[in-house]
Amino acid sequence: MNVNSKDRINKIEEVQAKEQFSGTFYAISNGDKLTGSYGYANRAEKIKNQINTRFGIASGCKIFTSIAICQLIEKGKINFDTKLKECLSFEFPYFDEEITIHHLLTHTSGIPDYFDEDVMDDFEELWESMPMYNLRRLQDFLPLFQNEKMTTELGTFHYNNSGYILLGLIVEEVSGLVFSDYIQQFIFKKASMTDSGYFEMDDLPGRVALGYIKKPDGGWRTNIYSLPVKSSSDGGAYVTAEDMISFWDALMNARLLTKEMTQTLLTPRVQVKDDIYYGYGGYMQTNSEHVEKYILMGYDPGVNFRSVHYPNRNLTIVVCSNKSDGAYEMIKTIEASY
């Protein structure tokens, strides 16, 4: 459906009013931009969200980890068939010895997920045994899963955060850099993502939206006690909507990887359901001929993120929210208007 900008804004306003969406959206199609912001980055201080507000994007940043791995593969340091036991010196007594980087990237390793949504409903349950303020390095996550048994067979898709913690540790081991420093230097800088970073929740820079969780009495509390204190290789980086537009442009124009490796990153690998597949860099919707759109998504308490890129329509949309919901409804409305 094609509509003019005024009609688009009217439809977006309707969704915002219904969902009480708090966040920012940015759409670009053949050079034409559509942007907007709603709600508060800081409710107590009445600081409104703006187009340059930085939002947490939860698992939406797993693709940065994937690209880092692909960059190291391009340098000949590792390959997709390199086994986990060949990459890391940490002990994993119950893990299948045949687990490879390919399995970790595609969520088919079968290792235990430290936050398995099929088992736990509440992310905050994790911090009863492991205080979130202790999770400042990637290796701090290991006690949550390294001594647990495999949960699915090797090769079976089961969305897995632990696998991306291990991929981040591989980046550190192979590159010799702290994971967040590697991403800053080799992805954010190259993609001109000048406002993005892996921040600590007790040491946030300016223009960061606090994440908000609704309380039973209808009020709001921040998510500072709900998430690991520092964003990590499985989720939690902070970006602006505009930075994510820059990211898609850099990725699709081979400024982060070679054209060949970019295609490898974005090729469907594992069928998740129907026409939805997972590659090395995220979800994608396909038809019988090609990939229709690439999909990034992230959810944490007080965080909701969605982004899509249509390669054959030159359309990119980013929606960042500092509440636990609303991004999906917003992005579907914007998608339907193009």
Results as ranks from 00 to 15, higher is better:
Gly279Phe: 01
Asn30Ile: 09
Lys48Thr: 10
Gly168Leu: 11
Asp181Ser: 15
Leu72Cys: 08
Asp121Gly: 12
Val229Glu: 13
Asn161Cys: 09
Val308Lys: 02
Ile73Asp: 05
Met284Leu: 07
Lys33His: 12
Tyr328Ala: 09
Lys332Glu: 14
Tyr283Val: 02
Phe95Asp: 01
Lys75Thr: 11
His107Phe: 01
Ile334Gly: 00
Ile9Ala: 06
Lys189Val: 10
Ala44Met: 12
Lys273Tyr: 14
Lys75Leu: 14
Ala254Glu: 13
Leu296Gln: 03
Thr156His: 05
Gln185Lys: 15
Lys46Asp: 07
Asn160Phe: 03
Phe199Gly: 08
Ala237Val: 08
Leu34Met: 11
Gln20Ile: 05
Tyr182His: 08
Lys230Gly: 11
Tyr159Ile: 02
Glu74Gln: 13
Pro93Val: 10
Cys87Met: 09
Val318Trp: 00
Asn30Trp: 08
Val319Cys: 00
Pro311His: 06
Tyr310Asp: 04
Lys259Gly: 06
Phe247His: 02
Ala17Gly: 13
Leu169Ser: 11
Arg137Cys: 13
Val270Thr: 07
Gly197Met: 13
Asp243Glu: 06
Phe55Ile: 00
Asn287Pro: 04
Arg221Thr: 10
Val119Gly: 02
Glu45Phe: 06
Ser29Glu: 15
Met120Gln: 12
Arg313Ser: 15
Ala191His: 06
Asp113Lys: 00
Met261Ser: 12
Lys77Arg: 12
Phe123Tyr: 14
Ser233Ala: 15
Ile28Asp: 03
Lys6Glu: 15
Gly31Trp: 10
Phe64Asn: 05
Ile69Arg: 03
Lys6Ser: 13
Gly56Lys: 05
Tyr238Asp: 07
Leu227Arg: 06
Ala336Trp: 07
Thr108Met: 01
Asn52Leu: 08
Lys48Val: 09
Ser89Gln: 14
Ile51Gly: 01
Glu97Ile: 11
Gly110Leu: 00
Asp243Ile: 02
Val3Gln: 12
Leu227Asn: 08
Val208Thr: 12
